[in-house]
Each structure stands twice: as structure tokens, then as C-alpha cells.
């Protein structure tokens, strides 16, 4: 019995690996087709990069908020650190583009991770609302520091003329970064490390008694989440070309949180879908001009209501879409 089960389970893992490979291949084919055929036009090509930034940001926040279960309201702070570190590296170096990009990405991720470590320490003492306030303050502090150290960051005016390494012209690079980031995070979640993180979320007292060092895993989740937020920040900076502290405000953190909540806490797939839809939606609603944000908000409310409704449950059960909608094991 145990043996058969293990075999079936291994098969399942193999199947999901193949599935992932297919989805990735489709993503490449789809994006290449969309861009090269020109259907996207200028407006939507640039949205493509925002989608990428938001996917990485949402999945990395989900690591902390969905899987570790700690509400973080300062994710934009980590993105800011990644954006500034990455931009300063590529601005000051004078090396071939691939080298600059590599060093910039590494610097962005590592610097953000170091801040993740720092913010991870109060996490050990605080929970829930208190921690949310601390992360909120963290986001504000980062913005103030960036404003203050003018000599390095350019103050409120920010940094200009950042090399445009990750614009829609370089969509294959950006897509690859998204694929790698998501793959690494999802593999971590499905490993013993992710299992330990979710155990801490579900019951930290039991997790500790079961031999899990909750301190290490809490900090670990924050560090990995921050690292990839830094990567997202790098892409953001090298797409827009200009960064200012005011860009990485509370609003940005909340927007990312909306992706995570709407896509479902602890669902990587959900975060990706929510990030795509909610990034494209405001563009699609552009025609409504003044009513755009209103419509966006109304759609958010309707989706949230639908997600929690009996109607959805019934639809999912009846249409045999259960598989599609139930979270993948390990992600659950």
C-alpha cells in the first residue's frame, strides 16, 4: 500500500513537472506571438513589463503573507531597494550589458534580502496587526531614506537615464526572469523548506514542538520574499528609466497585496492570474477615462464576493472544473 502510494505520488510529481514545462513553453510561444505579430501595439507592449513586475512582486509577497501567514504592508519598500541598488549598479558600471544586468540583478536581490533579514527580526516578536504596522512603517522609512540621501539617490527627483535593459524590446529577457523567479519560489514552497514555513503558519506551537526552528523559517521566508521583490524592483527601474521614492509608496504595497488576496492566499497560480488580469484591466478600462478607477474598484469587489460565494462553489463542482480551481497540493 505505502509503496503503491509513493509510486502514484512520484508519478504525480512527474506529471506536474511536465505540466509546468508545457505552461512555460506556451508562455514563451504566446508572448512571442503577441509581440511579433504587433497585435499588442505600443500601449499593451509596455503593459507586458508591468505584468512581469507585478507577477514577481505578487508571488514573492505571497511567500510571506500567504505561506508564512504574516501580513506585510511594506513590500514596495523591498522593491525600492532593489530598484535603486540595481539602477546605481548599472549607472555606475561601464561594462557590457549582459554583465551589468547580471550584477545589477544580483545586487538588487541581495540588498533587498539583507533588508528582509533586518525586517525579519521584529517578525520574531510581533504578529498580525502589530507586524503589519511595522512593515508599513518600514516602507515609509525606506522612502524617507531615499529622499534624504540625495548625494546617492538623487532625493525626491530620483534617478534618471537608467539604462533601458528591461523594456518591452527585451521582453524575452524579462519573461525569462519571471519564469525563473516563479519556478524557484514555487520549488522552494514545495520543498521541505516551504513545508516548514506553512507548518509555522498553521500552528507555530506545534511546529516548534515538532522540531522546526520557527525563528529561522520566518526569517527565511522574509529574506526570500524580499530577494525577489528586489528583482521585481530591478525590472521596474530598467523599464521606466526613471525612479523616485514616491513611486514606491503605500499604494504600491497595497496593490501587490490585492493581487495576493484576490488570487488566493497561498496560491502561486492565483497570484499570477490576479497580477496579469489586474494589471491589464486598468489599461483595458482606459476608454472610460474618469470612471476607470471606479470600475476597477467595483470589479475588485465583485470578484471578492464571487470568490467567497456559494455560486462559485456550485459552478466549480458542477462544471468539473474542480481540478482547475482547487489549489495544487503543497500549495494548499
Amino acid at each position: 500500500m505505502a509503496n503503491e502510494f509513493v509510486k502514484a505520488k512520484t508519478k504525480e510529481v512527474r506529471k506536474s513537472t511536465i505540466q509546468k514545462a508545457v505552461i512555460i513553453a506556451l508562455a514563451y510561444v504566446g508572448v512571442i506571438a503577441l509581440v511579433s505579430s504587433g497585435v499588442l501595439g505600443y500601449q499593451y507592449s509596455s503593459v507586458l513589463i508591468s505584468v512581469a513586475v507585478n507577477i514577481i512582486a505578487a508571488v514573492s509577497l505571497n511567500l510571506v503573507t500567504g505561506f508564512l501567514g504574516e501580513l506585510s504592508l511594506g513590500h514596495a519598500g523591498f522593491m525600492a531597494i532593489g530598484a535603486y541598488t540595481g539602477a546605481l549598479i548599472t549607472l555606475h558600471l561601464n561594462l557590457p550589458a549582459p554583465v551589468e544586468i547580471f550584477l545589477g540583478l544580483a545586487g538588487a536581490g541581495i540588498m533587498a534580502a539583507i533588508f528582509g533579514l533586518i525586517i525579519g527580526i521584529p517578525v520574531l516578536r510581533l504578529h498580525g496587526d502589530y507586524l503589519a504596522i511595522v512593515t508599513l512603517a518600514f516602507g515609509q522609512i525606506i522612502a524617507s531614506i531615499l529622499n534624504y540621501v540625495k548625494s546617492i539617490t538623487g532625493g525626491a527627483a530620483g534617478l534618471n537615464n537608467i539604462e533601458e535593459y528591461t523594456t518591452s524590446d527585451h521582453y524575452l529577457l524579462v519573461l525569462t526572469l519571471v519564469v525563473l523567479s516563479v519556478l524557484i519560489m514555487s520549488n522552494i514552497i514545495n520543498s521541505r523548506y516551504g513545508r516548514a514555513i506553512t507548518a509555522v503558519r498553521d500552528n507555530y506551537i506545534a511546529a516548534e514542538a515538532t522540531g522546526i526552528c520557527i525563528r529561522n523559517y520566518k526569517i527565511f521566508a522574509f529574506v526570500v520574499g524580499a530577494f525577489f521583490a528586489g528583482i521585481a524592483g530591478f525590472i521596474f527601474a530598467h523599464n521606466v528609466g526613471v525612479i523616485k521614492p514616491s513611486k514606491f509608496d503605500f499604494n504600491m504595497s497595497i496593490n501587490i497585496l490585492v493581487f495576493v488576496v484576490l488570487g488566493g492566499m497561498g496560491s502561486i497560480k492565483g497570484s499570477i492570474i490576479a497580477a496579469v488580469v489586474l494589471t491589464v484591466l486598468p489599461e483595458a478600462l482606459r476608454g472610460l477615462s474618469d470612471y476607470r478607477m471606479l470600475m476597477y474598484a467595483v470589479i475588485l469587489i465583485v470578484v471578492m464576493l464571487f470568490n467567497n460565494s456559494k455560486l462559485r462553489k456550485r459552478l466549480v463542482e458542477e462544471s468539473g472544473l474542480k481540478k482547475l480551481f482547487t489549489k495544487k497540493k503543497g500549495e494548499a
Partner: peptide, 8 residues
Amino acid sequence: IRLFGKMT
């Protein structure tokens, strides 16, 4: 009882 309720 203290289980990890949302895990299998």
C-alpha cells in the same frame, strides 16, 4: 489538538 489544519 494542534494540527497543521490547512495541510494534508
